[in-house]
């Protein structure tokens, strides 16, 4: 699960260091990239992520993203 998520993120934006825990709050993910990641995740995992789940807490690290995906898979 985790590798798939990480791979998807890297595909969207290869240059970002996804090991950080402050991806959104720290500014590494801007809104454009975030949109892409969300839409890619929705496509790759064939899930529907509701808009309110797109929060800094849920996307600050790969692990939080994984937790989120698992809720909707």
């Amino acid at each position: 699960m985790r590798e798939k998520v990480l791979a998807t993120c890297l595909e969207v934006s290869p240059s970002i260091d996804f090991s950080s825990n402050e991806l959104v709050d720290g500014g590494l993910l801007d809104s454009v990239t975030l949109v892409e990641i969300v839409t890619e995740l929705m496509d790759v995992f064939d899930i529907e992520i509701p808009y309110e789940e797109v929060t800094p807490e849920n996307f600050n690290s790969i692990d939080s993203m994984v937790k989120l995906v698992e809720k909707y898979v």
Binding site: S31, V35, V38, T39, M42, E48, I49, P50, Y51, V54
Partner: peptide, 18 residues
């Protein structure tokens, strides 16, 4: 952006369509 752009861009149905 917060109430029109992003909700549409991340709307699952819209994402599926694209």
């Amino acid at each position: 952006k917060e109430y029109i752009y992003l909700p549409i861009a991340m709307n699952p149905k819209f994402v599926k369509y694209t």
